[in-house]
Design a binder for these strands. Structure first.
Lengths: 251, 251
DNA sequence: GGTTAATGGTATTTTTTTGGTATTGTATTT
DNA sequence: AAATACAATACCAAAAAAATACCATTAACC
């Protein structure tokens, strides 16, 4: 929403004769935020646009914005823009579709990034050999990532894939599913197991929470139509920041 | 379908003056995908063709495509082309079978019983008034139970139902759904929200775990076909004793 | 099997947009 | 008249956007 008139009416500024211009603009902006016309994460129009629209100078606009930045209601980014602050909210993921984390977050307008914890080919653990049904001597590709949404660490995700399906894990840069699809590997069935457990110490470090706090553990196994196991992914989400939503249609 | 003009109209790009070029192209491509002009598996025209057609540089085209790849909507293959992903959505799923606690436990071969914690008509809390959409002066039926499997307390379950649908909670002895069905109240849709949180002290007592340990919190809201809210149920499962399993069918 | 054309991948540079700041003018208050 | 708050102008710096030029991989063709 970059158009000024979309959330600012002219009468908001010229009405009620007395009082400094910057105070009126400040109140108008506060009102737009509280009423929801400007939501968390939205970009404010450029200062120059605001100034032109309100027929006041840019410095006056800045003084109004300054105060709201001081109050923490707006955030400035040099060269980029000014944005409405967004308190850390719980994000949700729908169970009824198996989509990639990134796609899911993007749909909610959250910027996400990931830091690699582990990426490469390894000798499988006994656990992986059984779950993935690996042949003797087979290798396993491991992709460990720390998922970050809006600068808040949100989840630790560890995926194991048989090297048969992903011989070049180093080349996975974005979505695991995209990488698999590029190799024509398309799972058709998946089972998710959701449970709660306490966060261990080294995990707490990564997630920026206290050790022992509650985390949502999700284990997913996906299968090809042939029945072969493609992927085993174990994720641990921050309990205070993540909701899993399932929508059911009953008989 | 490799011809650009087949799915991209020139006005899609030059219209609506403001905004970066790459965003416009991105939206145009998204639109083409969602509208079905580009189907899953289709090859996108080469980046150079797109650039020439839109009169923008190839890097700008790439930036638009980059974002869609990041969202998982497109897949790149070096030296080959860029393709529309076959989305892994369209999930028909068997989540409904997960809703019945008793059935779920029976499948695991566990005998279950319940102890009543609370059962009766009450003046609704503000929370309940909002979630259930109660009329002014309306009452609410509350059913609080401690679920026990094989002599181990497993979950605390608290249900709130508008008295309109359940005026006689004292007569509920087994399943809530059976009681509702007996009154011809049949929810057709439900939303479950699953999260993890620490167990509070009075809850820990009931569940026979240490206070502060991890619990699986499930909130379920079910609706009639009319959209009316029937039931709001909040459950807290012992994190160490319960898994929530969902099976998904893709494609 | 090598050649080659077509495709995506990347590094570098230039231009445009955006917030940041110093200076000056103007009205209000003291 | 001095001091203060307010507002306008002009210029600076950072970031994003866009363009250019060149590299790497694939696949088709001979």
């Amino acid at each position: 929403m970059t158009s000024v008139s979309a959330f600012l009416a002219p009468e908001d500024l010229q009405a009620s004769g007395s009082g400094p211009l910057y105070v009126k603009l400040q109140q108008a902006l506060e009102d737009a935020i509280h009423s929801g016309r400007l939501k968390g994460g939205d970009a404010l129009p450029p200062e120059r646009d605001l100034a032109e629209y309100a027929n006041i100078s840019r410095v006056t606009v800045r003084k109004a914005v300054d105060e709201l930045v001081r109050q923490g209601k707006l955030v400035r980014r040099h060269g980029s823009g000014t944005f409405v602050s967004r308190p850390m909210e719980k994000v949700e993921q729908s169970l009824s579709r198996l989509t990639s984390f990134t796609e899911d977050m993007a749909r909610r307008g959250l910027s996400t990034r990931a830091e690699w914890l582990e990426r490469g080919l390894f000798t499988p653990s006994p656990d992986e050999m059984v779950m993935l049904g690996l042949p003797a001597g087979g290798m396993v590709a491991r992709l460990g990532r720390l998922r970050i949404a809006d600068d808040n660490p949100l989840a630790i995700e560890r995926a194991s894939i048989s090297a048969e399906f992903l011989p070049d894990p180093e080349n996975v840069h974005t979505s695991l599913y995209a990488a698999l699809e590029a190799r024509n590997v398309q799972p058709v069935r998946a089972i998710q197991r959701i449970s709660a457990r306490t966060v261990r110490e080294h995990e707490a470090d990564l997630l920026d929470v206290a050790a022992g706090s509650a985390g949502l553990a999700i284990e997913r196994i996906s299968y090809l139509s042939s029945g072969k196991v493609v992927e085993l992914t174990r994720s641990l989400y921050r309990g205070d920041a993540y909701d899993f939503v399932a929508e059911l249609t009953l008989g």
